[in-house]
Simulated assay, not measured.
Amino acid sequence: MTKTAPLAAALALAAAPALAHYGMIIPSDPMVSQEDGRSVDLTLSFSHPFEGIGMDLARPEAFTVTHEGETTDLLGELSEATVMDHPGFTMEYALDRPGTHVFAMTPQPYWEPEEDAFITHYTKTYVAAYGDDSGWDTELGLKTEIVPLSKPFGLWTGNVFQGVVMLEGIPVANAEVEVEHYNQTGAAVPSDLMITQTIKADENGVFTYAVPASGWWGFAALNTAEEPMMYEGEEKAHELGAVIWVRFEPWSVE
């Protein structure tokens, strides 16, 4: 009994699915109307969103908003905050004009010892202001990103979301995309294997996913950078994540 216990524990640990990491930009509202006010609150974090397990987010390398083709640097306006019991950032952004505002974060590369690799998640979310959805398919030209083929707001639960995975401006054939719910209600799953859904894009880099529940859903397309990074004198793999956060609304039409 004593001899087999460590082996059983080791097997259980090996069998447990790895927790998926997500860069996160969560706005207080993805569709801001005149009645809602003239600004949106943004929360930036790095976490395991379904489990609600936070991780440390160092000050990003870049944080911007793009509107009508104009990109504005917002890095200096971020305020330090605690998100899921770990360092993160917040800010209030004034929405001066209608249309879609695309917020994007480039974090500092994160060293993940369990994966023996660095992780950088280029993270985006889209906010529509004052009933104007123009610019909802904006591509930012990030090193890697998911360009929406479905409007990334104003979606009902049960709608599909489609996007194309881009790396260095080129669609990634057969890209692997991880999908996870930001579980703010304490929902349980029958198996840990269902926490992170995994799908693959087609030969054109296009993926499709039907969302089963309302709330925020993160889509992360993962690729490995050609150039490794150095850690303690050794070359290590560098995972590049293209992350987009999309909110789905509950069906409530009478």
Rank of each mutant, 00 (worst) to 15 (best):
residue 25 I to Q: 02
residue 50 F to C: 00
residue 127 V to F: 01
residue 50 F to T: 02
residue 200 K to M: 07
residue 28 S to D: 04
residue 248 F to P: 00
residue 123 T to I: 12
residue 50 F to S: 00
residue 175 A to M: 02
residue 160 V to Y: 13
residue 13 L to H: 07
residue 62 A to T: 06
residue 210 A to V: 12
residue 17 P to K: 11
residue 27 P to I: 07
residue 248 F to I: 11
residue 147 V to H: 02
residue 108 Q to K: 15
residue 173 A to H: 12
residue 231 Y to D: 08
residue 241 G to I: 05
residue 57 L to D: 02
residue 187 A to V: 13
residue 162 Q to A: 00
residue 48 H to M: 06
residue 187 A to G: 14
residue 152 P to A: 08
residue 211 V to D: 04
residue 120 T to A: 10
residue 135 G to R: 13
residue 64 T to L: 09
residue 125 T to D: 05
residue 144 T to L: 04
residue 19 L to V: 01
residue 183 N to F: 07
residue 22 Y to N: 08
residue 99 G to I: 08
residue 52 G to N: 09
residue 62 A to Q: 14
residue 64 T to M: 05
residue 185 T to I: 12
residue 194 M to D: 03
residue 156 W to K: 12
residue 176 E to I: 10
residue 194 M to C: 04
residue 251 W to E: 14
residue 159 N to S: 14
residue 131 G to T: 13
residue 131 G to C: 05
residue 248 F to R: 00
residue 201 A to T: 11
residue 60 P to I: 08
residue 244 I to G: 00
residue 138 T to I: 06
residue 231 Y to L: 03
residue 231 Y to C: 00
residue 51 E to C: 00
residue 140 L to I: 12
residue 52 G to V: 07
residue 140 L to Y: 13
residue 216 W to Q: 02
residue 234 E to V: 09
residue 104 A to N: 07
residue 42 L to N: 04
residue 129 A to I: 08
residue 23 G to M: 09
residue 251 W to T: 15
residue 250 P to C: 10
residue 176 E to T: 11
residue 195 I to Q: 12
residue 169 G to C: 15
residue 54 G to P: 04
residue 16 A to Q: 05
residue 200 K to L: 03
residue 230 M to K: 10
residue 250 P to L: 15
residue 26 I to K: 01
residue 51 E to Q: 13
residue 114 E to W: 14
residue 37 G to R: 00
residue 19 L to G: 05
residue 149 L to W: 12
residue 172 V to M: 02
residue 33 S to H: 11
residue 146 I to N: 11
residue 122 Y to I: 01
residue 223 N to A: 10
residue 136 W to K: 09
residue 197 Q to D: 09
residue 230 M to R: 04
residue 242 A to K: 07
residue 195 I to G: 03
residue 190 P to K: 03
residue 154 G to E: 09
residue 129 A to N: 03
residue 208 T to H: 06
residue 71 T to F: 08
residue 211 V to K: 06
residue 154 G to C: 05
residue 240 L to P: 01
residue 37 G to K: 06
residue 2 T to H: 04
residue 65 V to L: 01
residue 191 S to C: 02
residue 49 P to Q: 01
residue 138 T to N: 10
residue 219 F to N: 06
residue 62 A to L: 05
residue 199 I to F: 08
